[in-house]
Design a protein around this nucleic acid. Structure first.
Lengths: 209, 209
DNA sequence: GTTCTACCAGACTCATGAGTCTAGTTTGTC
DNA sequence: GACAAACTAGACTCATGAGTCTGGTAGAAC
């Protein structure tokens, strides 16, 4: 049925435009970026961009939302590894921590955070678009897992949400400086070191007994 | 000597322009902000801005540098309270932590970080301008104090720089979400809660057994 | 075949803003 | 008073980019 093929073509263009828009906005900044540049990057005519997204502002929102959805999927996959399979807790935490840090350090993650910071004054609603799709739900999911571990007696924490916040903070905080806002690529060895240190501190504070 | 008075007048204008530039750039973004708006905000003619700073790009650099210097002074003042006066360590850490968090949460601090994120792609050198004036030196100073406390036997840490990084991470990490990138004013009570939690965790990990 | 829809290239309008210039005003020095 | 340096308001040039429009192509539906 050609309706499907046509729709598929349409959807492909749409996705190509969203990807290109995110790339260009992230690279040049929203105000600086030209819609014609986005169109060129997507391999599409400028009018096509407008026919799909009506105006530049809407394009920004959609591009950011799509990018945030993508980031969420990756983050949740990392958190879901954290189960009580009776393994060594430290090893499991380090594995989850490393995966989270790798998500955090993806170029697109950095770009998303930078873009959000940049445009938060002009478009305050972007913050909700992003946070309800990423940060909040990742921390919640992590807190959930930590709570189960606490119930099982492997952790000792009265407030799993706080523990989750602090775990994420211990991971990402020391990375911020090293990554230079995402302009420097942090080698895996460094990620591993930071993760190990974070888990050490975390377990000192929230480990059993 | 009137040379001083003239120079003073000049310096006052200069400072007014720098302040205004930072405010406007932070509010509207570098690309969006008009130099005439900066001039108006500073109560000065546009030509005066150009006579002092030559072009918009240079104005941005100078404004950011000045703002970073200001932030550094405040942060160092907070860290310097951390001395071994034989007081209760927990109380001292909480006081220092709270002061650091208050610096971190100042409108201008948030604005500086947002602006830096926003323009890092266009002006990579801004990162050095800011970091050599703030983050790096604050962490170093903090590590220095922690090292002294370790020598005196009040703390137990093989790597004071790591401890300092993690202390700052435990303070600022959980705040990021609550402050919504600086668009929400975090009440002091919340700052106090986060500080207390951070110091708890920190002391579990690095306190004397 | 015809028609419809998505798409294309490129020209066009119009607003905005960087940076310059001019001509006149204030302020302090001698 | 004379002079110079800093400042002022406002007009001006010129490039850039959002959004529109025009005329035309490819392909699927019928």
């Amino acid at each position: 049925m050609s309706g499907v093929a046509a729709a598929r073509g349409r959807i492909d263009k749409r996705q190509a435009i969203l990807d290109a828009a995110f790339t260009v906005f992230a690279r040049e900044g929203y105000a600086q970026a030209g819609v014609d540049v986005v169109a060129a990057e997507a391999g599409v005519a400028k009018a096509t961009v407008y026919s799909h997204f009506h105006d530049k502002e809407n394009l920004l929102r959609q591009a950011i939302a799509a990018s945030a959805d993508q980031a969420l999927t990756e983050n949740l996959a990392a958190v879901e590894q954290l189960t009580d399979r009776g393994d060594n807790l430290r090893v499991t935490l380090e594995s989850v921590g490393l995966h989270l840090l790798q998500c955090y350090c993806h170029d697109r993650s950095w770009a998303l955070r930078r873009l959000l910071s940049a445009e938060i004054n002009q478009f305050p609603d972007l913050l909700d678009i992003v946070h309800t799709r990423t940060a909040d739900r990742v921390t919640d999911a992590l807190a959930d897992r930590l709570a189960r571990l606490a119930v099982a007696g492997h952790l000792h924490t009265p407030d799993p949400l706080l523990a989750a916040d602090q775990f994420v903070a211990l991971l990402s905080g020391p990375i911020d400086k090293r990554a230079r806002l995402g302009t420097r690529r942090v080698p895996t060895a460094e990620l591993r070191d930071v993760t190990r240190a974070a888990v050490d501190t975390f377990l000192q504070a929230f480990g059993p007994r």
